[in-house]
Amino acid sequence: MASLFHRLIDQTREFLHCTETPVPSVGEYLKREIRQHAAGWTGDEDAKKLKLAVLNTFFNVECCVSGTHSMDLVALAPFGEYSVLPGLDCTFPGGYQGLTNRMVASLPEDVMVFNKPVKTIHWEGSFQEAGLPGETFPVLVECEDGSHFAAHHVIVTVPLGFLKERLDTFFDPPLPTEKAEAIRKIGFGTNNKIFLEFEEPFWEPDCQIIQVVWEDSSPLEDAAPSLRDAWFKKLIGFFVLPAFEYVGSPVPGSSGLSLGEDPAFWANVLRLCGSGNPRLPAPRSMLRSCWHSAPYTRGSYSYVAVGSTGDDLDLLAQPLPADDAHAQLQILFAGEATHRTFYSTTHGALLSGWREADRLLGLWGPQVQQPRPRL
Rank of each mutant, 00 (worst) to 15 (best):
177 T>P: 00
170 F>D: 14
101 N>P: 07
173 P>Y: 09
115 N>Q: 11
223 A>F: 00
148 H>W: 11
218 S>L: 10
195 F>N: 14
225 P>D: 06
188 F>H: 14
222 D>P: 10
114 F>Q: 04
179 K>L: 08
127 F>A: 02
220 L>W: 00
93 P>H: 11
100 T>E: 02
228 R>A: 08
172 D>P: 07
220 L>E: 09
123 W>I: 00
178 E>G: 05
137 F>E: 09
147 S>E: 14
184 R>C: 03
144 E>G: 08
169 T>E: 10
195 F>C: 11
180 A>Q: 04
153 H>T: 03
200 E>K: 13
92 F>A: 05
134 G>L: 10
194 I>H: 11
100 T>I: 14
103 M>F: 15
198 F>M: 12
205 P>R: 14
104 V>N: 07
107 L>V: 03
175 L>V: 07
156 V>D: 07
99 L>P: 03
119 K>Q: 10
110 D>T: 05
89 D>T: 08
109 E>T: 08
127 F>I: 02
173 P>E: 03
192 N>K: 09
203 W>S: 13
122 H>L: 14
217 S>L: 00
206 D>M: 03
107 L>Y: 02
96 Y>D: 07
115 N>L: 02
169 T>K: 05
138 P>L: 02
95 G>N: 02
96 Y>Q: 11
91 T>V: 10
114 F>S: 00
85 L>Y: 10
93 P>Y: 00
215 E>I: 04
186 I>K: 09
164 K>S: 08
98 G>Y: 04
105 A>L: 01
208 Q>K: 14
213 V>S: 00
156 V>W: 12
109 E>R: 15
218 S>I: 05
207 C>M: 13
216 D>T: 03
126 S>N: 12
119 K>D: 12
115 N>S: 11
214 W>S: 03
208 Q>V: 01
87 G>Q: 00
202 F>V: 09
140 L>E: 12
220 L>R: 08
196 L>W: 15
197 E>R: 15
181 E>K: 05
218 S>A: 14
223 A>W: 02
133 P>T: 10
152 H>G: 09
170 F>P: 08
177 T>R: 09
123 W>L: 07
211 Q>D: 01
222 D>L: 00
122 H>A: 11
115 N>R: 08
196 L>V: 13
191 N>P: 12
106 S>E: 14
92 F>V: 04
88 L>S: 00
101 N>E: 04
133 P>V: 07
140 L>D: 13
191 N>Q: 14
206 D>N: 14
90 C>W: 01
194 I>M: 15
168 D>Y: 06
219 P>N: 07
189 G>V: 03
122 H>D: 09
144 E>F: 07
136 T>N: 10
216 D>L: 08
128 Q>I: 01
151 A>V: 09
212 V>Q: 06
149 F>W: 15
192 N>G: 14
90 C>R: 06
174 P>M: 05
176 P>W: 10
128 Q>L: 01
97 Q>F: 00
132 L>V: 13
104 V>I: 08
120 T>Q: 13
115 N>C: 05
183 I>V: 12
182 A>V: 05
161 G>E: 08
117 P>R: 03
213 V>L: 06
147 S>I: 13
189 G>L: 06
123 W>H: 04
152 H>N: 09
166 R>N: 12
128 Q>C: 02
225 P>T: 04
160 L>R: 06
198 F>C: 14
211 Q>P: 06
193 K>Q: 05
